[in-house]
Design a protein around this nucleic acid. Structure first.
Lengths: 363, 363
DNA sequence: CTGAAAGCGCTAACAA
DNA sequence: TTGTTAGCGCTTTCAG
C-alpha cells in the first residue's frame, strides 16, 4: 500500500496547509486563497495547478477546527431533542437534514431524555463547541433561560416544543386547534364522556393540547368534570379513568407514545377499541399507520417542522455572516397547521378516510 | 436584566481566557492551569479564588474549538448511521449515549440514507472536524476504503454493519446464527417451503443472513430452490413469491423494516398471518412488540451494540492519549449473540413465549 | 507558585 | 498575482 503521506510527517498525521504550501512552492496564504474558492481571489492558473497537485499528493483536507477558530464559525449546527427513540424526533431530525441537504452543515446531536439537567448540559456543551446555530426540540427552560440563550452569539430556533416566547425564532404547530379537532371528531362520533390523557404540564405544547380539549368540551357544553383529565403513567391513568362511576367512552391522548400504550393497555385488558373505548392520539407517528394499530391521530408534522426550523436557522446564520451589518430581524414565529388523520381507533370504519399513500414505505 | 458581560467586549461576545486573566490579575497560563483541573498544577488557593470569581463574573466558558486546536482532541465522536428513521438506529444511538454517559463526549451525527456517496461525504466531513473517534453503523465501504480510514489518526469502530475485516474494531451480532435460529424455528413449525426476503447484498450482515438461511435449509435437506430467495421491494417480492407454482408457506425477512411491509402487504391482500404465511423478521425493533403487530423476530441487540461500540472506542481513545506510548493493540472483534423473540407471526400461540417486560414503555 | 512565549492550523488584511 | 504578518483562544514547556 503506497504511503499516502509523502511529506515528512509521521504516518497517521494529516498534512497541513504548510505542507501543501511547501510542496507547491507557494505560501500558506496562497493555498488558503485557493481553498477559499468562493471569494474571487486572483491566482495564476499555473500556481493553481501546482497547489491542486500538492493537495492531491498529500491527501490534504483542511482542519475544520482550525478553520473554525479563525473564521469564528464551525458550519455545525446543534440539534437537541427530547428523546431520540421516540419516532417523532428522528422524523424531525430527518427534516432538518433534508433542509440542510446540500449545505456544508453537520449536525451535533443531543437527546435530553426529558431531563432538564441534561438539557442544560447539552446546551452548554454545544455553545462551548461554538455551533453556528441551535435547534431546540426539547425545551423545559423558562423564558429567562431562553432569553439568556438568545443573548449569546448563536442563533437559536425553538422547534415543536417552542415556548410562548417571542424572544426566539419558533416553529410550532397549532396545538390548540389540533386538540380541538381531535375532540370534535370524537364528539362527532357521539361520545359525551371524553377523557384526556395529558402530558407533563411543563411542556408547552401539552398545555395547549389540554386547553384545546377543554375548549372543545366546553363548546359542547360538556365541561366541568376534571376527573376526566388524567396524566402520568398511561396504564395507571387509564385504570383510574375506567373505574370512574361514569367512565369515559373515548380518550384523547396527548401524544402517540402514550396513545400506543393505551392501545396496549386495552389489548391486555380485553377492552375493545373503538367499540368500548375510542382513542385518538397526537403526532401521527408512522407506527399508527400499521394495519394492526390503526391509530387515529393528529399529525404534528415533525418532518415539516424540522425542515422549516432548519430553513429559518440557516437564514439567520446567513444574515449574521452577511457583510452588510444590520439589526437582526425580530424573532419569527411559524405556526404550521396540524391535520387529523383518521383511522380505526376513533370509531371510523377502516379505510374510510385513510388517505396515506399505500405504497410509501414506513421508515 | 443585568449585563452578563461586564468586560469591555460587545454584548453577545463571549469572554475569553484573556478577559478572565485580566479580571483576576493573573496570566492566561495560570487561568489555563486552573481550568485544566485534573493535572496537579500548584496554584495558590488565593489566586484560585480570584480566578473562580472572575470566571463567574464573566460567565466564562472555554472555547472548545480553541481547546481542540491546541489539544488535538475535540471530545467529540462521530456516529454515522444508515437511516435515522429506522428505529434500529435511534436505539443504537441511545446505547452509545448511554455508554458515553458521564463523559464529556458529544455526538456528531450523520445519516447516510443508505447512499454510499453520502456515507463518504459524512466520513470526510467528520474527519475534517477532527472527531476523536468514529462509530460507523453504516458501512458500504470495501476493505480498501476501511483500511484507508483506519490509517488516519482517528479511531474507528464498525458497529452492526461491520465488514469481515480485521482491520478495525468491530462490534456485531452473529448474523449467521440468528438467521439459522429463525429458519430452524420455522422448520420446527413444520414449514418446508420457506422463502427468504433478502436485503441489499452490498451490506455484509445481510449476506450472513442469507447464508444462515441457506445453511438451515440445507441441513433440513431443503436447499436448492433459488426462487425462494427474493429481494428488493417487499410487496413486489412477495407477489412474485406467492405466485410461484409451489409458493412458500413461511418467509424469513432480512430485517424488520421489510418484515413490517410484508405484514402490511398481507393485511392488504387478506392473507392471514401466520395461518397462510408465517413471518419472521430480524432486528426486533420495538414496533414488533405491539399487540397489533406481534412480529416474531431475531433481536439484533441494537442498544447493546451501540453501548459496546462506544466502550471499545472510548478505550481506544484513552489508549491513544495515554502518556505511555505503545503500539496500538490489534483490532478487537466483539460478536454479540442475537436472540429469537417469539410472538404471533411465526405461528406460535400469542403470549406463549413472549417474555417482554410487559410494563416497559415502548419508546 | 506564576508568567512569557511559542505553537496548534488556518484566514485576512496589507504590502510588495 | 503572491507573500508577510498578525491573530482566532487555548495549552504547554521552560524560566523565573
Amino acid at each position: 500500500m503506497r504511503n499516502r503521506f509523502p511529506s515528512s510527517r509521521p504516518a497517521g498525521q494529516r498534512a497541513t496547509i504548510s505542507d501543501v504550501a511547501a510542496a507547491a512552492g507557494v505560501s500558506k496564504a496562497t493555498v488558503s486563497k485557493f481553498l477559499g474558492g468562493n471569494k474571487n481571489y486572483y491566482i495564476a492558473s499555473e500556481t493553481r495547478e501546482r497547489i491542486a497537485k500538492a493537495i492531491e499528493d498529500l491527501q490534504f483536507a483542511p482542519n475544520a477546527i482550525a478553520q473554525g477558530l479563525s473564521n469564528r464559525r464551525t458550519d455545525t449546527i446543534g440539534v437537541i431533542v427530547a428523546s431520540i427513540t421516540n419516532p417523532f424526533y428522528p422524523e424531525l431530525i430527518a427534516g432538518v437534514e433534508e433542509a440542510l441537504g446540500g449545505s456544508e452543515y453537520t449536525l451535533l446531536l443531543g437527546s435530553t431524555d426529558e431531563q432538564p439537567a441534561k438539557e442544560a448540559a447539552l446546551v452548554r456543551s454545544m455553545l462551548q463547541r461554538r455551533v453556528d446555530g441551535l435547534i431546540m426540540a426539547a425545551v423545559t427552560m423558562d423564558d429567562a433561560e431562553v432569553s439568556r440563550l438568545v443573548d449569546t452569539d448563536v442563533d437559536v430556533v425553538l422547534a415543536s416544543r417552542g415556548l410562548d416566547t417571542t424572544l426566539a425564532d419558533t416553529v410550532v404547530i397549532d396545538n390548540l386547534t389540533g386538540a380541538r379537532q381531535a375532540v370534535e371528531h370524537l364528539l362527532g362520533h357521539g361520545h359525551r364522556r371524553i377523557a384526556h390523557l395529558a402530558g407533563p404540564a411543563d411542556v408547552v405544547p401539552f398545555r395547549y393540547r389540554i386547553e384545546g380539549y377543554r375548549e372543545a368540551m366546553a363548546d359542547a357544553g360538556l365541561d366541568g368534570d376534571e376527573r376526566l383529565v388524567a396524566s402520568g403513567n398511561p396504564a395507571e391513568a387509564m385504570t383510574a379513568l375506567l373505574t370512574l362511576p361514569d367512565p369515559p367512552t373515548a380518550v384523547f391522548v396527548a401524544n402517540d407514545r402514550m396513545a400506543i400504550e393505551v392501545l396496549e393497555f386495552c389489548a391486555g385488558r380485553g377492552i375493545e377499541v373503538p367499540q368500548e373505548l375510542a382513542v385518538v392520539g397526537f403526532d401521527n407517528v408512522w407506527v399508527g399507520r400499521l394495519s394492526g394499530v390503526g391509530l387515529t391521530s393528529v399529525d404534528s408534522k415533525a418532518r415539516a417542522v424540522g425542515r422549516k426550523a432548519a430553513e429559518v436557522l440557516a437564514g439567520r446564520i446567513r444574515a449574521r455572516h452577511a457583510d452588510t451589518v444590520q439589526l437582526p430581524a425580530p424573532p419569527e414565529r411559524t405556526v404550521l397547521q396540524p391535520e387529523l388523520v383518521i383511522r380505526r381507533s376513533c370509531g371510523c370504519v377502516a379505510g374510510e378516510k385513510d388517505d396515506d399513500a399505500p405504497d410509501r414505505s414506513f421508515f
